[in-house]
């Protein structure tokens, strides 16, 4: 029984990790290739979720909503890039942090104006609404679908980044952007492509979680911080690092929240154990990050040399 519970929690952890990966992949590429800190990446996840909610309410079908939301998220990302981010590539990190922080403030308020402060719900699509028994307990199919979609995107990214010409340019850009530019590649165009792609991935993540989380203003903020933890652990600019980091963070966070109170019961009395456990659990990933950086100051798989 405990092992089944552990397995289900591990599945939840992997699912959470894959969502984080979808966000972190775009973040790490933008960061790695353009040396650009985009705090507003989290709001792109939020915008993806809101677009899906709006399109789902309009068309009545989650599938159609997803198909409409993805290009919209892409277009939105490209619009932001053209309006603001393009002017920030040459600035230092401090300016980038501040300007994108301003965009977070604006967009969080903008969705509040358009859709209201109350959380929106998106119904789980009918085909994926059931649950299947795993070792005597039921596990929702939709979460398995998220895992499948996440793994699919990870595989796709692996193929694109590792085995295509554009992927080669992206990897080269992450290692040494000025050199790639000197070799005659239109680096600005590459930036825009990477940026739009990253925005779309974050929007996809938002769309996928819309049926299981409440869609509300500010939902991207905490996810953004987690995504940064992921790419810092994985090594900035490395998609492989982002994948491993995301799974690691997802598992540690989910299992920590679940098992810390239980494990502490061996040394503390039950009420104190559940209290301390709940206290320690959210800190675990930050401890993991600090420990990783202590051992490897540029993350597990640094792309820059």
């Amino acid at each position: 029984m405990t092992w089944t519970l552990f397995a289900l929690q591990a599945l939840n952890g992997v699912q959470f990790g894959l969502i984080l990966f979808l966000i972190a992949a775009g973040l790490t590429l933008v960061f790695g290739v353009m040396d650009f800190i985009n705090l507003a990446h989290g709001v792109q996840y939020m915008v993806g979720a809101y677009l899906t909610a709006a399109f789902a309410a309009w068309t009545g079908s989650f599938g159609t909503a997803l198909l409409l939301a993805l290009p919209s998220a892409l277009a939105f990302g490209l619009l932001l890039e053209a309006l603001v981010f393009r002017h920030l590539y040459d600035r230092d990190h401090l300016d980038q942090v501040l300007a994108t922080f301003g965009i977070i403030i604006f967009l969080n308020e903008a969705v509040r104006v358009v859709w209201g402060a109350a959380p929106l719900g998106v119904p789980v699509p009918d085909i994926l609404s059931g649950s299947i028994p795993i070792g005597g307990l039921n596990y929702p199919v939709y979460r398995l679908a998220i895992i499948a979609a996440g793994l699919g995107v990870a595989g796709l990214l692996y193929g694109i980044v590792g085995h295509t010409r554009i992927g080669m340019l992206v990897r080269a850009g992450a290692t040494n952007a000025p050199m790639v530019s000197a070799l005659g590649v239109n680096i600005r165009l590459l930036f825009t492509v990477v940026f739009g792609f990253g925005a779309m991935l974050a929007g996809f993540a938002g769309a996928m979680v819309a049926p299981i989380l409440s869609v509300e203003p500010g939902m991207g903020d905490n996810v953004l911080i987690l995504a940064f933890v992921v790419i810092v652990i994985g090594g900035i600019g490395s998609v492989r690092g982002a994948f491993l980091g995301a799974i690691l963070v997802g598992l540690v966070d989910t299992l920590g929240r679940f098992f810390a109170p239980t494990l502490l019961r061996f040394v503390l009395d039950p009420s104190a154990a559940s209290q301390t456990g709940r206290a320690i659990a959210p800190m675990l990933i930050y401890i993991l990050m600090a420990a990783t950086l202590f051992v490897k100051p540029s993350g597990l798989f640094p792309a820059k040399r």
């Binding site: 600035r91 501040l98 300007a99 301003g102 965009i103 403030i105 604006f106 967009l107 308020e109 104006v113």
Partner: peptide, 13 residues
């Protein structure tokens, strides 16, 4: 905040 956010961006730029 709709005004404050863009002000921040403009201040940086």
């Amino acid at each position: 905040r709709l005004v404050f956010g863009p002000l921040l961006v403009l201040a940086v730029l």
